[in-house]
């Protein structure tokens, strides 16, 4: 890693300087990946709780009758799109294209909000139309806590990205903050891949016709 002596002159050099570690990976990024490895266990535990109770009591409810796969499928598209925009935000931040960062981050947050609204609507719909609550039965418990925890992750991500969006409008924003946006982006993508798993194992598999 060649370090530039006057970091402030070149936005790229400031970012390169952060890589002057034993491995060439920035500290924040490494810590984030360690956190994501840990978060796999968080969601692993939640997902297994849900699946275990689906296995123990296959007939406790008929999720097909409750779920709205069109809505959930739409939510999945939305979250995937937000991930795409997030990747573009990071790319723009590395280019030093501040306008791009703002637009793409704004788009990411917008799609994230749509996803959250979808989830709020879904929960509301389940509670009012089907009477499925946390304490209806064990399916309600595991389903709401699993998807709710994911929703909390999305909400935290929106707050995090939103803070960066505001920050880009201040004079404190500097080129090397591209790394911070990248790290926030890693978190956002992780929330997306968790949804990819939840979408499949919680929603889609319920629709598989159980013919032999």
């Amino acid at each position: 890693m060649s370090a530039h002596s006057h970091a402030a002159d070149d936005p790229h050099a400031a970012l390169e300087a952060l890589k002057e570690t034993s491995t060439g990976i920035e500290n924040k990024k490494l810590a984030m990946w360690a956190f994501l490895a840990s978060d796999c266990m968080f969601f692993g535990t939640l997902i297994s709780t849900h699946l275990i109770y689906r296995k123990i009591y296959p007939d406790i409810v008929d999720p097909k009758a409750i779920f709205d796969i069109e809505l959930t499928g739409f939510s999945s598209f939305i979250l995937l799109m937000s991930s795409f925009l997030m990747a573009l935000s990071v790319s723009a931040a590395h280019k030093g294209n501040i306008k791009g960062v703002r637009w793409f981050l704004g788009g990411t947050i917008f799609f994230g909000l749509i996803f959250l609204c979808g989830q709020v609507y879904e929960f509301h719909h389940f509670v009012t139309d089907f009477g499925l609550t946390l304490s209806s039965n064990v399916f309600g418990s595991t389903f709401y806590v699993l998807t709710g925890t994911h929703g909390v992750h999305v909400a935290l991500g929106i707050i995090w990205l939103g803070s960066w969006l505001v920050y880009t409008f201040t004079d404190r924003y500097k080129a090397e903050h591209a790394l911070d946006i990248e790290v926030a982006g890693l978190y956002w993508h992780f929330v997306d891949i968790v949804w990819i798993v939840i979408f499949t194992v919680v929603y889609l598999v319920e629709y598989v016709p159980f013919l032999t």
Partner: peptide
Amino acid sequence: VILAFPAITIALIQLMFDRHFGTFF
């Protein structure tokens, strides 16, 4: 620590929900 503690964190959250919010974990 980072791979083992999530399991207890989630289990404690589930227990907390059982005790406070009427879930059936």
